[in-house]
């Protein structure tokens, strides 16, 4: 008995699956974001410029970008240290410590926010000794930085770990046998390999820091001109029904997020090979 020829495309369900994907994506994500873009486009550019240049808004944008940048850099360095030790040292309880790295992802931001605030408040476990040293943390920009580093660490560790695991030890042996010191081996052999992952982790932490609200709102103290981050100012404007003010600021954040998303995609293409697995 002769079987009918098999169609080249015999897997069914492409149409319905794609249709549902597109519909859900449009309803949940694209339509609401399009509403924001449209209402920003309806505003005269001069109006947006005026809102963004107002001292309180400009201060919050400077603070948000500056702190997100600095915290992402610190998180990338601390993440490199943690990833290095977790991959290369045989620590007791390594699996437990490794699981703990994701805590900032898993812990609701409001809980992280009140916990960090209580710790770093002038009468807290860490805040009291730090205040005695003349370094107040809670309700200062430094406090916001601490919260953002807390959030950024897992991004750096999780992008670096797979790259560190996949590095061929023989390359380092070769460098050492050719007379390189440990420092030279790290700088000239390891670091170039790690750089794409480090940059990816940094960008992800930076993007997260720009938009962060929950863990920052408690520790910042929310003083206009001093410790008021952009997401918080958006919230304030919404509560005052100042939709134009909120829209202008949200548009700035959205454009920054888009550019960072593009940068991360480029970085992942750059790290083709080990880092792309991430």
């Amino acid at each position: 008995m002769k079987r009918p020829a098999v169609e080249p495309r015999i897997l069914p369900g492409f149409g319905p699956a794609l249709g549902f994907t597109l519909l859900w994506l449009s309803v949940v994500v694209l339509a609401p974001l399009a509403a924001l873009v449209l209402s920003a486009l309806r505003m005269p550019p001069a109006e947006i410029a005026r809102i963004v240049a107002a001292p309180r808004v400009a201060a919050s944008i400077r603070l948000t970008f500056g702190l997100a940048l600095a915290s992402a850099a610190v998180a990338a360095l601390l993440g490199l240290l943690l990833a290095w030790v977790l991959v290369r040292h045989r620590l007791p309880g390594r699996r437990l410590l490794d699981a703990l790295i994701d805590l900032p992802f898993a812990l609701p931001t409001a809980v992280a926010g009140i916990a960090l605030t209580t710790l770093y408040a002038p009468n807290g476990w860490l805040g009291r000794p730090l205040a005695a040293l003349g370094v107040p943390v809670a309700f200062t920009p430094l406090g916001i930085g601490v919260a953002l580093v807390f959030l950024g660490i897992p991004f750096a560790v999780r992008t670096l770990e797979p790259v560190l695991e996949s590095l061929d030890p023989e390359v380092e042996d070769a460098a050492t046998s050719l007379g390189a010191t440990a420092g030279q081996t790290f700088r000239r052999v390891l670091f170039p390999e790690l750089l794409p992952a480090l940059a990816t982790g940094f960008s992800l932490a930076f993007a997260r820091g720009l938009g962060e609200y929950g863990s920052v709102v408690f520790i910042s103290g929310n003083m206009p001109m001093r410790t008021e981050v952009a997401p918080l100012l958006i919230m304030t404007r919404l509560e005052q029904y100042d939709y134009a003010g909120a829209t202008a600021l949200a548009a700035v954040l959205l454009v920054a997020s888009f550019l960072l998303l593009l940068a991360v995609n480029r970085l992942q293409a750059w790290g083709v090979g080990p880092a792309a697995r991430g």
């Binding site: 509403a35 924001l36 929950g214």
Partner: peptide, 13 residues
């Protein structure tokens, strides 16, 4: 990539 505050805000819009 979108700030949670912006995500809530677009729903208000």
């Amino acid at each position: 990539a979108v700030s949670p505050v912006v995500a809530g805000m677009v729903l208000v819009l």
